[in-house]
Design a protein around this nucleic acid. Structure first.
Lengths: 340, 340
DNA sequence: GACTGGCACTCGTTACAGTCGAGTGCCAGG
DNA sequence: CCTGGCACTCGACTGTAACGAGTGCCAGTC
């Protein structure tokens, strides 16, 4: 394919201009705003090639060119230069995140911060239970036949669940149960708990066996099956920026997708370590989001990844800027988590 | 004011037609669709009066009439007939809410249910801590200088918070602290805890005094100041029904308002016992929501109110239907809570 | 006095024609 | 391989005209 350097420069210029002006960009405007060193006619020839290769298209014959999803992809992969954060942005991140008092607080502040900095919709996954370890399991007697099971993960996440016991259980037994459970499960990765829970039941003293069986069921549900993942969302109002030009006139599919936790998890949860993932338009597997792009990355204390975070916006977004912001925020959050 | 029965009937007909068709309604269409027993000309005269009194208006000279906020208000107060839920709706409510496994689950199911039934944006406030009592306070040692404080409210709500202790505290002391705290605070209304916490510090044995002081600070923060209220939201995609006719073309202010928890709490949190509150358009104190209406009510086990729930939509909404649904859902949720 | 039919009027909507101009593709020449 | 020039396309905008839904008013009827 004959994509020489100048053609790439033209594509880059088109993307940059279109992203900032939101209007199809013509050959004349291009040479005026960028130092391409050639005439509009030459640029037109390049554009014709770029269009043939599927990187740009014209909304209608007498209009300028607009990048296609494929064009954005090339831009992101090969053409965008890293855009360092401004000092003001760095300060904003620090200011916003210090003073967070617990995990909930961290997540909420993070998601708002991301939405504010990128002016897009921000999504933050709570630290995944699957990738966490049990720090402590607490049994709190509510009545003689009811316990509250509280699980504290090493990431700071806390899950609780009410347990209906098969019969009254004296306080001393609760103490024993608590000890047994913690001996077995503390410091275990959540994903590895099922066999341990099974062992707990088998090894339980006969007197505690029925209660332990009930507990085991709830434990498995709490640790593995239910609610496994949580999501925080902010900045939906940013979808309305840029009139209705983005998202071809209807926010509906986007808003619907944002209500589906499963969808969001797929979007930002499946990150390989330390990569920033960019999904552009129809690269996305959800039809509802074919007009949107997602920039996401993983975060966690040190080098381990415990969750994902990212932003969602129109395909016409500032990729370099958003990538830089998402990365920076993820790094700060990781540091914050490492302190616990 | 000369609002005889027929004029009221005309207003009612206008509201009903406009709500269902979403188009300004004219005199001719009115007499065709309702048995008013008079001619279009007569209806026109009535309309002129209604317009003069501010209950309806014309978008432009050659168009039909549309209810004003004032018109909706009159409709809601005096003209709407109660619309009983369909059996299908009743079934849906029951089916949706049984099987909820804990409070989080109840709240999430409720908010989704409301959004689905009313096809509006649904808002549910978690049971307010201010109106709850302490069921139990648990101290979980994380390390020698760190505790996790877990508060379980009688409504099922659970709050937790990490506490950094001034120095190492032996396990036995933790047991003592737990006992002291529970003796003093269990069953107390959260709003009444501040003096009790104060007393805790004063009455603490000298050895435990410093630790108790630290705990007291966190207790006050957890019980009274922080996060006091939480909100669940669903159905934002419903805002896009009815094209962009509702909300005069921009969802932006609405979406912004929905991101502000404070705003939502004001909307649905301030409910007097067992009343269903309807706020129509500019009756709302938030400028962002002057194009929206809110139907809300309180819920709770038995006759006490522990939180609010409701729906938000365009002023052009089905008030009788939404009022009925909101009430019914609130009642079911109350029953569900009472079972704990 | 209340209701009705009729009629003139308003004004937004639609359709159509014409102009404008941004932007293109192509070609001949450097 | 680049460039200037030129004809062409086609959406955006403007102006005009016909249309029709809906109104307000008035004179007539019960």
């Amino acid at each position: 394919m004959g994509l020489d350097d100048r053609k790439l420069a033209v594509l880059r210029a088109i993307v940059e201009d279109y992203v900032s002006t939101q209007e199809p960009v013509g050959s004349k405007a291009l040479v005026e705003r960028h130092q391409l060193g050639v005439s509009p006619a030459t640029v037109r020839n390049d554009m014709a090639v770029l269009e043939e290769e599927g990187y740009i298209r014209q909304p209608h014959t007498s209009a300028g060119r607009v990048p296609t999803d494929r064009g954005y992809r090339l831009f992101v992969d090969r053409l965008s230069r890293v855009k360092p954060l401004s000092p003001a942005e760095r300060r904003a991140i620090e200011r916003f995140l210090v003073g967070a008092v617990d995990l909930d607080d961290v997540v909420h502040r993070t998601v708002r911060l991301l939405a504010q900095l990128t002016r897009q919709v921000a999504v933050v996954q709570y630290p995944s239970l699957a990738r966490s370890s049990v720090r402590h399991l607490e049994l709190v007697p509510i009545s003689t036949t009811r316990l509250m099971l509280v699980m504290i993960a090493d990431t700071g996440r806390v899950e609780q669940r009410l347990v209906e016991l098969p019969g009254p259980v004296p306080a001393a037994d609760v103490t024993d149960l608590r000890r047994l459970i913690n001996e077995k499960l503390a410091n275990a990765r959540l994903s590895e708990t099922p066999p341990l829970v099974q062992a707990l039941v088998e090894e339980a003293p006969t007197g505690l066996r029925p209660t332990m069986t009930t507990l085991a069921t709830v434990l498995l549900e709490t640790l593995v099956e239910r609610h496994e993942e949580r999501i925080a969302l902010a900045g939906t109002a940013n979808l309305t920026r840029g009139g209705l030009l983005d998202f071809q006139g209807s926010l509906r599919p986007i808003l619907e997708a944002l209500e589906e936790e499963v969808v969001l998890l797929k979007l930002i949860g499946e990150t390989e370590p330390s990569t920033t993932r960019v999904l552009i338009g129809d690269e996305n597997e959800f039809d509802n989001l074919r007009a949107a792009s997602v920039v996401s990355t993983g975060y966690g204390p040190g080098t381990t990844i415990v969750g994902g975070l990212g932003v969602l916006g129109p395909t016409r977004m500032d990729y370099p800027g958003n990538i830089a912001t998402v990365r920076a925020v993820a790094r700060y959050v990781g540091e914050l988590l490492a302190q616990n």
